[in-house]
Design a binder for these strands. Structure first.
Lengths: 127, 127
DNA sequence: TATAAAGCTTCTAGTAACTGGAGGGTCAAT
DNA sequence: ATTGACCCTCCAGTTACTAGAAGCTTTATA
């Protein structure tokens, strides 16, 4: 199938699929005589895998590792788990950061009158 | 004072201060005869303001707006509050996204044995 | 006074992961 | 024959810096 069919099946933009081919993440299966990329079902599966991995926020580099394990029959689930745990930690770290910010900003927003006068605790805090 | 003194006082890297000058966010107060940037206390205050704003995750563009209001005596606190509320919403939206991801990934990680065998629910989910 | 270290300048390029657009070839249908 | 929908490559832009090169000036030391 050509790239737009692969795009439909994988639910990825054509541009993104070309980009993944460029960086070597998921290469096209082949090319037609006129230079059009072709993809088979296996390649589409890899594209779907990449989309899901990216949706979880795994970086391209992490996705590359996962993809390698995906097609490695001799993989250990421990390797997969380690990568996932790393990502989980990233998420939790980010959540903590955001929660600190949210609390502080929420307090400031609540204490700001939000009227026509210039006086404002948000500005006091920043300045 | 020169740029490295401004950097110390504002707790920003020299490179970042130059960058802010380049994009017109916080311009240097002047230049010495040999072309060195100079900063006065007012400029340093603006740099500190920018640092705090960025620490809250306000974008450069939002920071620009806040900075304009900072030196606007006729500002209304409503304008400031609106920008802060927008940022607060961004934070909350991100938090919700992360929480969904965290739950899902956490479940997968917990259900993965993490041993020498290849079988792995994380891979099952992605593939 | 010579010199070396530190500090300043500008300019370019790289980071992450795409996305948009230009310019141009190809293919299917009317 | 032509229109519209594909496909291709290459370049630039996005965010907010950061690193490094090449080359001044200033300051401190021997």
């Amino acid at each position: 199938m050509n790239i737009s069919d692969a795009a439909k099946k994988s639910e990825l933009p054509v541009k993104t699929i070309r980009y993944y081919a460029d960086i070597g993440l998921v290469k096209e299966t082949g090319r037609t005589a006129n230079g059009y990329r072709t993809y088979d079902e296996t390649a589409v599966k890899r594209l779907i895998f990449v989309r899901r991995s990216r949706e979880f926020g795994f970086s391209i580099s992490q996705t590359e590792e996962l993809l390698a394990l995906y097609s490695d029959e001799k993989r250990s689930s421990a390797e997969v788990k380690a990568i996932a745990q790393k990502r989980l930690l990233e998420i939790e770290t980010k959540q903590k950061e955001l929660e600190i910010l949210r609390k502080e900003l929420s307090n400031l927003v609540q204490s700001c009158h939000g009227d026509d006068r210039p006086n404002c605790p948000i500005m006091d805090y920043l300045g």
